[in-house]
Design a protein around this nucleic acid. Structure first.
Lengths: 342, 342
DNA sequence: ATGAAAGCGCTAACAC
DNA sequence: GTGTTAGCGCTTTCAT
């Protein structure tokens, strides 16, 4: 077995008996090539298993046909889902996807400092993290299109859900069941600005307000994102003199952690306390968790379409918000002592 | 705000008062440049915020500094974890990562058909899927280095766990607890060849054999990979005249599904039946699932190191197997009617 | 130690 | 419809 020699377009042109220019035009399906010629060129290319050199092509053309994707977490379900949707549409559009993981603040500083994607891509999509002003200035240096997914953005086109709405769907469900002592476990990502969970938080307060329920500060605990952290938060809530009858968690992972604490404390869900999350993580279905579903892959796809549109020079929507939906399963029920309100 | 003009090496050379050749040598830290000159060039580059054009550089040099990663699933925890580990070491080595999702067989055919990575990368790493002979031939054509992660491979260097060993750790635990009617829920990935779960399956039979336990074909059910499928399998097992007292699931996700069926059937875990999985998926910790841990990110990292080594022309290990470890939590206990053996 | 010049493989004017 | 000819921005002999 031996490695095939790199076949160049010159070889193809020669074999097809045309000039390189014609070969190039034919291969690129450009106008102005006789059908017969085109066929001949394609056959020649086929026979030689010719593949363009993307480097040479990019160099000559000035576009890379690549897009960078910047993510704060790769293996967290939400981000992986966005990535999956994004990859699919980029691939269909013939664009390659360069992955950059920017985990903690240091990674992040370095990324914007060195701008490793510079000159390597035609566009970049940032997944679910806010880009501050200074960082925007750096991006500017790259001179490429930018789109954001999984969160709102003031400067770039973006796709996201309405977090406040999602939160209200979750809270509304709890309120509707008759709960009056509802706790919130708010989750923040230690390496990202706080803004992310703002919508989900304010939904708590506005829902309570709308229902005429008082806010009890003891009932809201803020932790870092993650299941184990959710468990810790629940432990704290369980230590209260008057524990909640329901808890609204900012995410399913957090909710799952809370459920573990409940289970370990010998409490039943939803008998003793109801739990609702947000996301509809695949696991939610397996633990029968009531939650609010957000379409994750779809958000990735839409972001992908935005990128593709931008690169084609089209005008794209400045933002699209995809709908969320309450999914009632078995972790929520009316509180013990009070029936559902009238 | 305006986009910076693309600065070329010619600009740098001019500003430093040297020829392009020297500028190139200096910037690449090549030998044969006076220290003073080098400094001058670097400063010029700095002042102009010069960044090489990777296209031009690759074209001239013949290497892309990019590696392709081919994955069958992006958002499944295992793959995302591998990806995360891989990305980290590639990034440290200054290599860019091109992501290709090859989901079903059709994607796959198309991938190998079009060989999108051809001429675009210096190496490719295939995550957890077997590459058949024809596909190997195509890879060969690309003339790039290849490494596999998350599964054994006959042809390429690879990193993986010992699936049989992992299975035996799980089964051994059940046997040790005194279980005699142990079921297995085997999971296959519909779009991947069967080989993947062979180790985990044969562990079942060999463990049973070693323990002097008889095989009851009714106790093994094979389903597609996934939580809901695991639930279905459990339903079937529950319908048996003599249901199992323990179940060994090929993965945590499947185990989780099984637990749902158990819960819905009003059975308690581990009171009525014990459940053990494999993987130590992050969720396992949250549901207190007993399982066998495999280091996922680490496998990705090792694969990354293999790639880097290969590209440096070093000789790399043909394979590395990372250890797995039983993690006992709360879904396993001795069977009801029999105490732990002697 | 440095410079001149020839490519790397392709695309895009511009002629014909 | 097809061919000629410049580059695209860099690396690398080969001279000097």
């Amino acid at each position: 077995m031996t490695v095939a020699r790199q076949v160049s377009m010159a070889d193809v042109a020669r074999r097809a008996g045309v000039s390189m220019a014609t070969a190039s035009r034919a291969l690129n399906n450009a106008a102005g090539v006789a059908e017969a010629t085109r066929t001949r060129v394609f056959r020649a290319a086929e026979e030689l298993s010719y593949v363009v050199s993307p480097e040479a092509s990019s160099l000559a053309r000035g576009a890379t046909q690549r897009v960078a994707v910047v993510v704060p977490h790769i293996s967290r379900w939400f981000f992986a889902g966005l990535l999956e949707g994004l990859e699919a549409v980029l691939r269909d559009a013939g664009l390659d996807l360069l992955l950059y993981h920017v985990g903690d603040m240091e990674d992040r500083r370095e990324f914007f400092d060195r701008l490793p994607a510079r000159r390597k891509v035609d566009a970049v999509v940032v997944l679910a993290f806010p880009v501050d002003e200074e960082e925007q200035r750096r991006f500017q240096l790259m001179g490429v299109d930018i789109v954001a997914a999984g969160g709102q953005h003031a400067t770039y086109p973006y796709v996201c859900i309405d977090d406040e709405m999602a939160g209200r769907q979750a809270m509304g469900h709890l309120v509707h069941l008759g709960h009056e002592r509802i706790a919130m476990i708010a989750a923040v990502d230690p390496d990202q600005p706080v803004s992310l969970q703002q919508g989900r938080s304010s939904a708590y307060y506005s829902s309570l307000h709308d229902a005429g329920l008082a806010v009890d500060d003891d009932l809201v605990v803020t932790v870092n994102w993650g299941g184990p952290e959710g468990a810790l938060a629940m432990d704290r809530l369980l230590g209260l003199r008057r524990p909640p009858t329901a808890v609204y968690a900012h995410s399913d992972e957090v909710a799952l952690g809370a459920m573990r604490s409940l289970r370990r404390a010998g409490l039943s869900v939803p008998g003793d306390v109801s739990v609702v999350g947000i996301d509809d993580h695949p696991v939610a279905e397996l633990v029968d968790l009531t939650t609010v579903r957000q379409p994750v892959e779809q958000q990735g796809e839409i972001a992908g379409e935005m990128v593709v549109g931008l690169l084609r020079g089209e005008v794209v929507q400045r933002s699209v918000t995809v709908p969320t939906q309450l999914v009632v399963r078995s972790t929520t029920a009316p509180p013990r002592r009070a029936g559902p309100r009238a």
